[in-house]
C-alpha cells in the first residue's frame, strides 16, 4: 500500500500530536458547556460584528480545539458582546459568557 502524502507536512495542517491543551482544559473547567458545541453555525450566521469583520463563535471554538489559539482570539476580537449568538444557540451555550472566559484564559 502506498504511503502517498505522508512525507509532506503543510504548515496549515492541524497536528493533534503536538497540541498543548492545558489552556483548553482550564477553559472547560470554567465553561464546561464549550464541549456541547455541535458546529451548527447559527452563532456565526447571526453575528452582529460578523457583517463587518470576520467574527465567528463556531470557528473560534474549533480553532481552540485544534490548538490555534491566536486564530481563535482574532475571530472574537471584534465581538461587541451583543449576545445575539447566545439567543440563537440550539445547544443553549451561554456563548456571550464563553467569549469573556475565552478572552480571560487566552489573553
Amino acid at each position: 500500500m502506498g504511503k502517498f502524502g505522508f512525507a509532506l507536512s503543510p504548515s496549515s495542517r492541524i497536528n493533534l500530536d503536538t497540541l498543548d491543551n492545558v489552556k483548553f482544559a482550564h477553559l472547560i473547567e470554567i465553561e464546561p458547556d464549550v464541549l456541547k458545541c455541535m458546529a451548527c453555525g447559527s452563532c456565526t450566521a447571526s453575528c452582529t460584528a460578523g457583517k463587518f469583520v470576520k467574527t465567528s463563535m463556531r470557528s473560534a471554538i474549533l480553532a481552540l480545539q485544534n490548538g490555534r489559539n491566536e486564530e481563535a482570539i482574532s475571530l472574537l476580537k471584534s465581538c461587541l458582546l451583543c449576545g445575539k449568538c447566545t439567543m440563537v444557540c440550539p445547544r443553549a451555550i451561554n456563548t456571550r459568557h464563553l467569549i469573556i472566559s475565552i478572552l480571560k484564559v487566552y489573553q
Binding site: 496549515s12 495542517r13 492541524i14 497536528n15 470557528s59
Partner: peptide, 13 residues
Amino acid sequence: KAEDTLSGKPLKV
C-alpha cells in the same frame, strides 16, 4: 490522516 472539513484544513493525529 483526515481533513477537518469544518476548518478546511488537513489534520494528522
